[in-house]
């Protein structure tokens, strides 16, 4: 076995937005730094670095997590989804479309995380009620919108389909 103290560089294998990624990263690098600096996927933002604001939210094996509080090394073998992977071939998802139609966006800094948490909720439960929607986005601070139009956008998608 390697001397564990020498394991300062981690060989990482994971899938990001469906594509395999292989990179060597410093052990202390967070998943957020990895996505933003190495992969230049800058949709996830750092709003606080301490898990309070939710701007860095990505989906790790389908669940929303604060990428600022996950080491890239911890995401080895994981499936990561970021906002950049949501629209396919330039076509927005119904949820992204709903955010635009309902005016659920202002400065846009919280939007990536909001969309991903809401998307994860809808995949788990296609017809969530208002309470569940509020709960799913309660870990995302938005200073611009007052949240109402965001909740309405998610509700509009939750009400559709089977």
């Amino acid at each position: 076995m390697l001397n564990p103290l020498e394991q300062t560089i981690i060989s990482l294998q994971l899938r990001v937005n469906g594509l395999p990624v292989q990179e060597d990263v410093p052990a202390q690098m967070t998943l957020l730094e990895f996505l933003r600096q190495r992969l230049r996927l800058t949709g996830a933002k750092e709003g606080c670095g301490s898990g309070e604001c939710g701007a860095c939210t990505v989906l790790l094996d389908g669940r929303p997590v604060n990428a600022c509080l996950v080491l890239a090394a911890e995401a080895n073998d994981a499936e990561i989804r970021t906002i950049e992977g949501e629209a396919r071939d330039g076509r927005l998802t119904p949820l992204q479309q709903a955010f635009i139609e309902h005016g659920a966006i202002q400065c846009g800094f919280c939007t990536s995380g909001m969309v991903l948490s809401a998307q994860a909720l809808l995949e788990r439960n296609p017809h969530p009620g208002r309470e569940e929607i509020v709960e799913a986005i309660a870990g995302h601070l938005c200073r611009c919108t007052g949240y109402v139009q965001i909740v309405e956008a998610i509700e509009s998608v939750a009400g559709k389909g089977s």
Partner: peptide
């Protein structure tokens, strides 16, 4: 009239670049 924001697509897809990025 209500019209969709001009920055909507850039912001819901994460492609809007801030100085932060």
């Amino acid at each position: 009239h209500t019209t969709a924001r001009k920055d909507g697509v850039a912001k819901v897809t994460g492609s809007a670049q801030f100085v932060h990025d």
